[in-house]
Design a protein around this nucleic acid. Structure first.
Lengths: 245, 245
DNA sequence: GTCTATAGGCGGATAGAC
DNA sequence: GTCTATCCGCCTATAGAC
């Protein structure tokens, strides 16, 4: 009995995954607004009504794809941060074996960019134009926060180590920055939080321009430009420049 | 005869405008990938086949909307730059009545943001996810460049006035930056061009995050954050901070 | 869970009359 | 330039049998 139930559950998981995979393929071909359960079913050799046992509506399928995409890009960022934290244990001869925060920042930024380049349509789904008529349920907010939290962690670490130069903060922003710090960046001073949020948006601006074609016929050396700009952004939130040890 | 032809031409222009207006409305409701000539015709009380006399295909209509949007946001940027150039002729008591470049930069950035907030769906059309299957014809590249050229002009002016602090430039970027300077930013040093292109992308990153919902439940004081970040970006391309005269 | 069948729509594009 | 008619395709969603 439990094996049967186990088999059924496994089958259900596999079919669900197949549906999402096919849906992701179609995102690329038609875009999120045109994602159609029927086309997915056809491609899978199923009948459209069968899909409704897995996703009660088109929007639920969309939500699943969005959550998966946020989780994937968030995981990429977290992994890059973790790797940088314990990299080069032998090669490094300094007293502190820790990688400087600015370098971790750039590594995370590059990991995010690389995920985006490898999954352009999923990136467009979460950071591109909103899908008209679709309203994101609360399920998406946790996954959506992951990349930002990685960046916050890096800055918090630098601050605790006394390694953060506070950037200037406009008067009109202080109250909001204090609220943000309390809401999701405890232990980071408001000056850094405001700069951090701006840097976060700007990082994705670079990626979006590259991915959405604004750099066509304009920028050739995109990775080099991105690295330079990401490093500048690290500096703008108060992290010490990588070369300045 | 000429009045008749004039009347016909006027009618054609009016109908064309009506079609584009209705199409813009539908952009908001369904998104660019779902824009449908048939729905536009229905709403206008025309029959679908009649639209083909004005736009030979759906993609041609889309192109017209894209060109219009780029032209509108470009005009907004140009106007902000022009107004700043000759503003406060009486109030200013300095010997040089010119507005400092960093201030003009911020004014242009704010104008672009305001246009975007006022026309979110047209903004999404040109700076959001690419429309799958649509390939932009060459007609769009001129209009698409206008905002960037305004920013370039500001920096060039500052450079000529000896008012530009060259930012650092990574080795891997120099050749590309020199090419860019030759291609579309003559008279601006490569260091500034590289920083400029990055700042351009980052500016739109701030706007896109605000417009596409990434700041929901995160940032409240969006204009203040934008102004601060835009000012920082001006500084990052080498313009002297506004308060430093 | 999957099937057939069905309701009640929608789309792009063209031909040929007026 | 606009009309009707047409081709041929597409969609979400549900009901009810197996």
């Amino acid at each position: 009995m439990s094996t049967i139930r186990g088999a059924r559950e496994r089958a259900r998981i596999e079919v669900t995954a197949a549906i999402k995979d096919e849906a992701r393929k179609q995102l690329a071909e038609e875009g999120a607004p045109k994602l159609s359960l029927r086309a997915v079913a056809r491609e899978l050799g199923m009948v459209s009504s069968a899909l409704y046992r897995y996703f009660p509506s088109r929007d639920d399928l969309l939500t699943a794809l969005i959550v998966d995409a946020f989780d994937a890009i968030g995981a990429a960022a977290e992994q890059a941060a973790a790797e940088q934290a314990r990299t080069e244990p032998a090669a490094e001869e300094q007293a502190s074996a820790e990688v400087p925060p600015a370098e971790r920042w750039v590594a995370v930024a590059c990991a995010v960019r690389e995920w985006a380049l490898a999954h352009p349509h999923e990136y467009a789904l979460i950071y591109g134009s909103p899908v008209p008529g679709y309203i994101a349920p609360m399920d998406t907010v946790g996954p959506a926060a992951r990349v930002g939290l990685v960046l916050i962690d890096i800055v918090r670490g630098a601050y605790r180590a006394g390694d953060l130069t506070l950037p200037p903060l406009a008067d009109g922003l202080r109250a909001d920055a204090e609220r943000m710090a309390a809401d999701f960046a405890e232990g980071v001073p408001p000056e850094a939080v405001a700069a951090l949020v701006a840097a976060w948006a700007q990082l994705f601006g670079l990626i979006s321009f590259e991915l959405f074609g604004q750099f066509n016929r304009v920028v050739e050396e995109r990775e080099a430009l991105f690295r330079q700009a990401a490093g500048e952004l690290a500096r703008s939130v108060g992290l010490r420049a990588a070369g300045t040890a």
